[in-house]
Simulated scan of single mutants.
Amino acid sequence: MNVTPKLDGFVFGRILLEEPEKCRLTVLGTFPASFLSQSNSGDLPAIIRIEKTAIPVDVSNRIFPDQPGAFLNQLKCMESTDIYMWFAGWLASTSMERQPQGDVKVNIICPATEVHIRKYSKQNSILVRETPDIYHRIVQPYISELPPERTKWVIEILEGRKEQSKILFSSSDFIILPDMKWDLHTISSLYLIAIVRDETLRSLRDLRANRHISLLKTIRSEALAVAQERWGIERGGLRMLIHYQPSYYHFHVHIVNSNYEVGMSMIVGQAHLLEDVISLLELDEGTPDGPGIFERLTLTYGLGEQHGLYTAMTAAQTES
């Protein structure tokens, strides 16, 4: 892990998103090519998200220490995968000893694409209904045409080139590791991710009873075992979710502390409880022929105006 006193060369561009209720700010700017030790000239667009980490109970008697110190006095790179990095930051030099997870958590995407910039910008959302016909005509082609670079960071983890020290469980079917949203210390905000190895499984729509019930049940049981063994979290202490539309199209399950509220990622429509998904697939057991239940369902969810599907899905609403 590297420690650096500052993010050398960052040039502020503009604020993408202010989230004061979450103590989070997302800005757009640039780094020089030297930030990534690249020889080419020119600036690299970068998104920086900075947010306040949870305050441990054992430091509650010294939340406001009377000491000098500049904001983000120290930074430590905690993880780096492809274009994604996250740092722990400290408000004062003495904080590193007192709060190992950092005073703030800093996420960096560099170089950031136009897709990233749209994703993290303020945007309005609408509810859309996705019928099976709309999925096959609009959504499935959109997913198929996405460039492989969008999930390069996932492949680097699955193929053993990144984040191997963080992996909590690994099998021939999937891995479990901490999500980059988690600070790795605060159990009440525990956030893990299970990523399947099958690259043909892209989203909720691809799940089939005859192939995936066993996979999902194994993910559930292994996640419960990891949480109990490592952090003493008992059955019922985890919330497991599948997002649709997902943030990236390589099938994964979100695993969070059941007491942790993470806002939009748990909103009705986008978040489907793993237990409910398994139950729906079980309705198809014994009937292997014909389309699966997630091929037949009409799904309703929120879609932001910056999403690549927004224009086509908005136009399609007059059909459903």
Results as ranks from 00 to 15, higher is better:
Gly292Lys: 02
Glu51Arg: 15
Asp284Ala: 12
Glu18Val: 11
Val128Met: 09
Val115Ile: 08
Leu184Asp: 04
His116Met: 14
Gly269Ala: 13
Pro147Tyr: 05
Glu97Val: 11
Ile55Gly: 02
His307Trp: 13
Ser279Val: 11
Met266Glu: 12
Phe71Met: 06
Leu91Val: 06
Ile126Gly: 08
Ser34Met: 05
Leu36Tyr: 05
Asp43Gly: 10
Pro141Thr: 08
Arg49Val: 15
Leu274Lys: 01
Thr300His: 13
Ser95Leu: 03
Ser221Thr: 10
Lys181Val: 01
Glu305Asn: 10
Met78Val: 12
Glu51Phe: 10
Arg24Lys: 11
Tyr301Phe: 15
Leu190Gln: 00
Pro100Thr: 08
Val268His: 11
Lys166Leu: 05
His272Lys: 10
Thr287Tyr: 08
Ser125Asn: 06
Phe31Lys: 05
Arg296Pro: 05
Ser258His: 00
Leu281Glu: 06
Ile155Glu: 09
Leu280Cys: 12
Ile219Glu: 00
Leu177Glu: 00
Thr30Glu: 12
Glu275Ile: 07
Leu273Cys: 11
Leu146Lys: 10
Glu282Ala: 07
Thr81Asn: 11
Val154Phe: 03
Lys181Trp: 04
Gln270Val: 14
Ile213Lys: 02
Ile47Asn: 02
Thr4Gly: 15
Leu281His: 04
Leu273Met: 09
His243Phe: 06
Ile83Gly: 06
Glu156Cys: 12
Arg49Ala: 15
Met78Ile: 13
Val256Ala: 00
Asp198Leu: 09
Leu72Ser: 13
Tyr310Lys: 02
Leu201Tyr: 05
Trp231Lys: 00
Ser188Met: 01
His212Arg: 06
Phe64Met: 14
Arg129Asp: 13
Leu280Asp: 13
Lys76Met: 09
Ile213Met: 08
Glu163Trp: 05
Arg62His: 07
Val277Lys: 04
Leu216Met: 10
Gly269Ile: 14
Leu184Gly: 01
Tyr120Leu: 09
Ala54Phe: 10
Val59Gly: 12
Cys110Gly: 15
Val3Ser: 10
Thr287Val: 05
Thr53Leu: 08
Ile187Gly: 00
Gly69Val: 04
Glu159Thr: 07
Pro111Thr: 14
Glu156Ser: 12
Glu79Ala: 12
Glu97Leu: 10
Ile138Leu: 10
Thr300Ala: 14
Leu299Ile: 12
Ile48Pro: 01
Asn210Asp: 11
Gln228Leu: 02
Val3Tyr: 12
Thr318Phe: 15
Leu168Ala: 00
Thr311Met: 09
Ile293Gln: 07
Asp133Ser: 11
Phe174Met: 03
Ala225Asp: 05
Glu18Cys: 10
Leu28Gln: 03
Gly9Asp: 09
Pro288Ser: 08
Asp103Gln: 03
Leu91Cys: 09
Lys105Gln: 15
Arg202Leu: 07
Arg220Thr: 00
Ile83Ala: 14
Val226Leu: 05
Gly9Asn: 07
Ile176Met: 01
Ile134Val: 12
Leu16Trp: 02
Asn40Arg: 06
Met313His: 02
Arg161Trp: 05
Ala33Ser: 13
Asp183Ile: 01
Asp82Pro: 04
Arg161Phe: 08
Glu51Asp: 14
Ile278Gln: 00
Glu79Leu: 08
Ile176Phe: 00
Trp182Lys: 00
His185Trp: 07
Asp133Thr: 15
Trp153Gly: 07
Ser125Ile: 07
Tyr310Asp: 02
Arg118Trp: 06
Pro111Gln: 06
Ser144Ile: 07
Ile213Asp: 02
Leu91Tyr: 02
Leu184Lys: 07
Thr218Gly: 08
Gln38Met: 04
